[in-house]
Structures are given as C-alpha cells and as structure tokens.
Design a protein around this nucleic acid. Structure first.
Length: 567
DNA sequence: GCCGTTTTCGGCCCGACTGTTTTCAGTCG
C-alpha cells in the first residue's frame, strides 16, 4: 500500500467527518496526517511492518498511529467503512463544487436526500434549493456552474504548459501604466510539477483600472469576479487566474503568503506565535507594531530564519533547516554542463545525431550522451550487431566534425521483467554509458527487478515511471534501491520531461539523504526538447539537490573520472 | 485527534470574500 493510498483513505475520512459535523480540530488532525504521509519520503507500509513507533512523528498520536496500522495491514479502515454507512459517498464529489462546503452539502442532503451531482443539478434548476435558508439566487447559480465545470476540474496543468501563458500575462500587465511589480506566486512560483491556477500579485497605482485591463487579456474566456482588490478569470484553456492588488509596504508578506505552500505558512505562523509574534499576509507584528513585511527576506529574518527558496516551502524540514543554517544551496540551470540522456532518429527521436549535437553546441553544452533505445538497435540473442556498430561509428564521425563538444556513446537499455538487460555484456562493454530503464510490465513490486539491474548500469532512467496525470509510480522499496544504488555508484536520473519529472521531488530528497548521486537529463527526442533540462532543474531544486549532488554539473574531465572511479 | 520551556486541559493559523443577512455563517486560499 503506497503512501498516496493511505493518505487518500485518511483525507476521505476527514471529508466524511466534516460532513457529519465533527469537531473541526479533529478533522484537521486527520487532514494534517494525510498530508504528512503524502509528503513523506518514508514508506509508511514499511514503517508499520518494521514495527516503527509512528507516534514519534509529530502530528501522529496514539489513535492515528493505530488507524494507520489498521489501514496498512488490513487494506481497510473500519472507521471509514462505518462512516460510509451513515453518509453516502456521493456527497464527497459535491464537496468539490465551488461554494459548497460540508455544511451546505449536509443541509442539501438532509433536506432532499440529494447524493449525486445529477440530482443536485435537478434540485437547483427546479427552484427547490431556494427554499433552504442561506441559499439565494447567486449561490444557486454558482452551484449550477460548478456542476458543469466539475467534469473537467481536478486535473492540474503541467507547470511547463502554463509557463508561456504566465510569461505572457506578466508582460501584458507590466505594459499597463502605473503597474510597478507583477509577480506570479502560488505553486507556479514553487515550481511544482503541476499548477492548479495562477495567483498574480500586482503593485499598481490604480488597481481597479488594472483589473479592467486584466480581464480584457485576449485569452480570457470568462470573468468570474472583478472586485476592488481581487479579480478572477478563466482562460480559453480552462486555467483559472487570480489577480490581486498588493501594497508596497506589505509586498514581502503578501508574496510570502500567496506563494505558500499552505503547510509551510501554517508552520511559519506557529513559529511566530512561539516567539510572541503574529504573521499575516500584511506583515509580521509584535502586538500592534508591524516589524516586517516589505520583503520576504525581512519576514524570514525577523523570525530568526535564513531565506527559504520558494521550491523548498512544502513543510518538509525547510523551516528547521533555516533555523539551523543548514539549508541547501540549490542547483541552478547554469550549473549543468552536459546532458546524459538524448535520443536520435536511430531510435524514436525526431532528429538525427548531427542536428542534436549542433543544437547542444548552441546551448553551450560541454558534452552530450547519445543514448538511443536498445530495442531499436537490438543486438542481444545472437542478433546481428552490424546496426549498432554503424550507429557508434556514425557518432565517431560526428565527433570528429564537432570537436567543440564531447559526444558520449551510450544507450538506454530495457530492464526486462526479471531484472536482466536486453543487451548482452559484450555489447554493454562497447558503450561509455548505460542507462537502464523500465518500459514495460509496470504492475507488482519492482524492487527485485531494479536491484538486479543496478549491477550492470550507470544510470537508472526515470526510476518510478510515472506519467503525471496518467500513470502512477511503480511500486518498489525505494529506500532499499537507493542504498544499493549508492553502494554500486549507480546514478539516479531526474528525467526532465515535463510529464515525467522522475525521480519526484520527495524521492529525490530521500535519495540525497541516503547519499545518492543524480543526473538531470533531458531524455530529448527532438532538438527542441534539449531545453527540457530547466524543468528537471526545477524538480531537482524541489528535491533539495545541490550542485555537488549532480554529476552532469561536472566538467567532462571530472565526469570521466567519476565513472572510472565508480567501476 | 494532537500537544505541552505557561498547560494532561484547553487550546489548535489567519484573514477575506460572498451572499445572505441585519450581524454573520460558510467557504476559500
């Protein structure tokens, strides 16, 4: 059972308790633990099976510790099963409608027995809902709109898919007279792999005028609200964008607040309370006196913290590290000197070797590894090796033509179901670098398969195989894999493809703590995709990685000696 | 349900907005 699954059961229980009208703080405790488990780099199933005392983890007490054990060991949660008997599961999806929270959902259920979106729609349209106290025409309209929108909601946008529009919007707003600063906060600023909406902060002389201008942006499809300090619109692609007016004096506190994450903010506020201070979106206060707020640096400083980069603000230990001055100095795109995972039209890439190399030179890469798929150049099982020879010869030719870049001869080989590779040892010997990846048979525990493969590869490619919004991570004991990888000097890939970003931030952090090394690779299948490295860097930063953790931040010479030492 | 350098009881992050009211509950971020 994965952390995600455990977390989902707990937060579903929280939803149910909320509809039931339980003590809000009890509900918060459930949600809090659900979040902790979801964000944890520890495998909770393993913790339980190892007999680890869960109450050692802050937020988990006696009760929840037992509940988690029950969930892991029986794959069920009796408390939730009981709740389901009382409260129809259909009410949960009603919760995701904008404007409907637990109280109103309960109210509707009690009055009409409504348990599905279809029924809800019927009652809203027929005018029955108006009869409930607190349900006016505007709320009904909102509900109807919500029912319609819900179908497409829930899917978050890939960070890379909103990058362009975010830039465009920023420039558009900066063009308006009187606009001084435009900053996009929220998960976009934290470089989270997916983004739910864009939160844009503006400092401007006349906000209402800016708002008027904002809603005229060419890609705005629907204006949801346009107030004196805040406006919300939906773009033609369905993305929600919030614009907020910000004052200069509290800019830092406001930016901090809207950058989040929520969990980070809550911890910051708790810490402030301990110090006799109060933090809100306008500043840091001692009593009535405002003592900080102009800049984020100032906010952190008066709380006794080092500045925390947005990518780290997930309440994963960054606050403690900021107190102890042990925050990492995060890797940057400019630190990367090469790319160790690149495809050409020798396998499923779009462009040929020469064009890939030329583009890499333009991008100022010092080296590039050509790592086409093994299955396209298959040579094992006594097959003809002629094709692979030719491919490698071709690389040599191009190397001669472009001495300004070092071309590394490699391959991305398949890790087969039993953990063996689909190139024989003799073939592997011919390569400078071997990436091992899983491409088929994702179900079931993959630990043994990967552990075996680690013996023969240099880099473990897109380790979890997840595709964001499409395919979940494969199941494996990552801790065991990371320890083995460290022992064998196998490097873990941070695959930069916007849909992969794999390893994930959480696992990267865990692997780093174990002492693993990483390679941030584009996995480019076209010249354009060579630029994906920036997305990998985003993810690496969220995983607390520093320059020293990443082997393609090494110069070519250092890289060669790294691989020599590790063999 | 969790937690404790004021506390084993009595707190729990904090404020804005909306729509509905006539002083506020519910929802949201």
């Amino acid at each position: 059972m994965t952390n995600q699954e455990i977390s989902k059961i707990l937060s579903q229980t929280a939803d149910m308790l909320e509809i039931k009208g339980e003590n809000p703080f009890k509900i918060r405790a459930y949600r809090n633990v659900a979040k902790i488990i979801e964000n944890s780099s520890k495998d909770f199933e393993k913790l339980v099976k190892d007999g680890f005392d869960l109450t050692k983890i802050p937020g988990i007490g006696k009760d929840l510790s037992e509940y988690i054990k029950e969930i892991v060991l029986t794959k069920k949660f009796s408390k939730l099963e009981e709740l389901k008997k009382e409260i129809p599961v259909g009410l949960l999806e009603m919760l995701s409608i904008e404007g409907l929270g637990p109280k109103r959902v309960k109210q509707i259920y009690d009055a009409f027995g409504v348990t599905s979106l279809e029924e809800l729609k019927k009652y809203a349209e027929s005018g029955e809902l108006d009869k409930l106290p607190g349900f006016g025409p505007k709320l009904i309209e909102k509900i109807l709109k919500g029912v319609k929108q819900l179908k497409k909601a829930g899917i978050r946008f890939l960070w890379a898919d909103v990058e362009e529009i975010a830039k465009e919007l920023k420039e558009y707003l900066l063009d308006f007279p009187g606009v001084e600063i435009v900053e996009i906060a929220g998960s976009y600023r934290r470089k989270k792999e997916t983004v739910g909406d864009l939160d844009i902060l503006v400092i401007a002389k006349d906000y209402p005028k800016v708002s008027e201008y904002f809603v005229k942006f060419k890609r705005v499809k629907e204006i949801y609200s346009a107030g004196l300090t805040r406006s919300t619109v939906f773009l033609d692609n369905g993305l929600q964008v919030d614009l907020r007016a910000v004052s200069k004096e509290s800019y830092g506190a406001t930016l901090h607040y809207f950058t989040g994450s929520k969990a980070h903010n809550i911890e910051i506020r708790k810490l402030a309370l301990l110090k006799g201070l109060k933090v809100n979106e306008y500043g840091v206060y001692r009593g009535d006196e405002k003592i900080a707020g102009k800049s984020e640096e100032e906010v952190y400083k008066v709380l006794g913290l080092d500045y925390i980069e947005p990518e780290l603000r997930e309440n994963r230990g960054e606050i403690e590290a900021a107190i102890n001055h042990t925050l990492p100095k995060l890797i940057e795109l400019k630190d990367l000197k090469g790319d160790l995972h690149v495809h050409t039209n020798a396998s499923d890439g779009r462009d040929d070797i020469e064009n890939m190399v030329k583009r890499a030179i333009e991008l100022k890469r010092e080296y590039i590894a050509i790592t086409d798929h093994s299955y396209s150049l298959k040579v094992a099982n006594g097959l003809d090796k002629e094709r692979l020879f030719k491919h490698l010869e071709k690389i040599d030719e191009i190397q001669k033509k472009y001495p300004e870049i070092k071309i590394i001869k490699g391959a991305e080989v398949d890790i087969l179901e039993d953990g063996s590779l689909d190139y024989d040892d003799e073939t592997l010997e011919m390569l400078d670098i071997v990436i091992g990846s899983i491409h088929t048979k994702f179900s079931g525990d993959q630990t043994k398969r990967i552990l075996k493969a680690l013996e023969k590869i240099d880099i473990l490619g897109h380790p979890t195989n997840r595709i964001i919004n499409k395919r979940s991570e494969i199941e494996a004991n990552w801790e065991e894999i990371f320890y083995k990888a460290k022992e064998l000097n196998v490097v873990l890939e941070i695959n930069s493809h916007p849909k992969r970003l794999d390893l994930t931030d959480i696992l990267a952090k865990k692997a780093k703590e174990i002492g693993c090394k990483f390679s941030i690779n584009s996995d480019a299948h076209s010249t354009k995709a060579l630029e994906y490295l920036k997305y990998g860097v985003n993810q690496a930063r969220r995983g607390w990685l520093e320059k020293k953790d990443v082997i393609n931040a090494l110069s070519y010479k250092e890289l060669i000696s790294f691989f020599k030492d590790s063999k």
